[in-house]
Write a protein that binds this DNA or RNA. Sequence first.
RNA 1: GGUCCGGUAGCUCAGCUGGAUAGAGCAGCAGCCUUCUAAGCUGCGGGUCGUGGGUUCGAAUCCCGCCCGGAUCACCA
Length: 593
Amino acid sequence: MIQQLLTEKSAKAIELLFGVKPAAEQLTLQRTIINFRNQGDFSLVVFPLLKLSRKSPEETAKLIGEKLLEIAQEVESYSVIKGFLNLRVKPSYWINFLRNNFSVENFGQHEKKSDVPVVVEFSSPNTNKPLHLGHIRNNLLGWSVSRILEANGQKVIKVNLVNDRGIHICKSMLAWKLFGNNATPESTGMKGDKFVGDFYVLFDKKFKQEVAHLQQNGYTEDEAANHSNLMAEARQMLISWEHKDPETRDLWTKMNSWVYNGFDQTYKRLGIEFDKTYYESETYLLGKELVEEGLKKGVLYKKNDNSVWIDLTSDGLDEKLLLRADGTSVYMTQDLGTAQLRYDEFKPSALMYVVGNEQNYHFDVLKLVLKKMGNEWADSIFHLSYGMVELPEGKMKSREGTVVDADDLIDEMINTAKQTTIELGKIEDFNSNEALNLYKTVGLGALKYFILKVDPKKNMVFNPAESIDFNGNTGPFIQYTYARIKSVLRKAEGLQIDFGKTDEMHQRELSLAILNYSYPQIVAQAAQEHAPSVVANFLFELAKEYNQFYHDLTILKEENDDKRSLRLALSKLTSITLKNGMNLLGIEVPERM
RNA sequence: GGUCCGGUAGCUCAGCUGGAUAGAGCAGCAGCCUUCUAAGCUGCGGGUCGUGGGUUCGAAUCCCGCCCGGAUCACCA
């Protein structure tokens, strides 16, 4: 890596000049800022070195620059501006890099690191309502982070944990039973998850009516809720379910299968799949044994009513319930159990959970409880906490009907892509199938990029009133750049790429080469930070750089064979980098658009 | 109230392991297609980086106080 090499040689130069080896933190080598790119490619900051040199910044920089010309064959020239030593790397270095990499299809893929997998859990929907924009962010993040880890040579197991049981599921079941008239998704022509979701909403509506009615008869709000027949029936249904009552179980199986059918369609459209799906109905009893164990070890304790707790106050958290007085488990108990299950099953190097930041506390507790019970592997638990997607006026609220439905949004994006494409007159020679594929690719590309370009940690704002852009820092911009390059490459087929004795490069060529060169480092950084946004922002920069290159220089019409070869190689490599990078975001890239 | 996260241009976001004159995109204005795809390129206007202190040769970036916004502190999941 050239940065590392230049840093090492600089250290050497300093040692030779001033007789002292500089500390690592005294050596900052950065990409030369854009305004001074004509002066060099990388810059060494000399201020921290003045203590060693005991000379002015300018003089120090000059001395180091001269010395580097002697001892670093990669350095072509230097210039000094204020306290910055700008170094120009010999073009032959980049040419050599291009020669070796310009047609490497898996450019950016790191070598396999180990067979020990990382387990990534994401999506984890409830089966009582359809997926919405928040789920989309979760799914895209989980998918993309998995791809990024894979690109870094790690083995990844993508798992989904479906929340398919509980009182909320019983609510939609009960509503269907009481008010559904045996309707089905087939009989109504509805998507299964939407169909079931409507009954969940219906339950809530009927329940509120009942409560309001009771309140009119003199009950307080709390009393009314407690006297609700509907709620009592839902609770009874949960008990029946837990007793494996056949009729209840049949209804449950039937309605869940409708939901899964709907989810599968959405996952497929998003291009997402899992290696393994867990169901809470099968795992919700796990964790009780762990609690027994914890009691024996004295890590947990029982209160008078027989409920089981852990005291985390000494760690700055609170007391946390793990088993109710009646011995039933809570969310935390289940999660302890599934974590243990997953650890036993895969012996992974890390257990990753892609879950919204509203659950930060939950995961702090989860990790701590496991740790206190003596599980060293608890340290490998990583909560990939992401921010909420909000509307300009704040949170999405189902009550106010402001929740942005996943399918609707996808439809809308594909539709906009269609309109835009037709307006621009891009598809005269496309057959209908090609055209449909293009709309899908571009529409989803816009949506996915829009979401993934934002730092996962941060909340983000989505304004339904403005459609997601197709120009500027967007997915379609990058896709367009790719298609543009492919068009050039198609026309260049048969041309020999052979850059014999090219020894000088245009600034645009240089920048493009260096950006591509840094892509593998970007992939590593994205993995380290668990941030697809790192890749997204890089790709935008690269696409922008290519468009400038494309605008300023000719490629096919260049008559000098060496220059044309260099530009074709740069084009080819850029297309590969764009494609591979977009792939890490789960975004497809069209050959023409 | 405790804990955690955030506050950068009208809007959406980069930059945050300290380094050069704080960057993009959108929106606005002005240009560039008989030339490899104009979903592109170029230019203009737009900033007390919430605020007050501190550390440093140097602070949007690190530390402390305060203000504002959000999340969370459930025998819901």
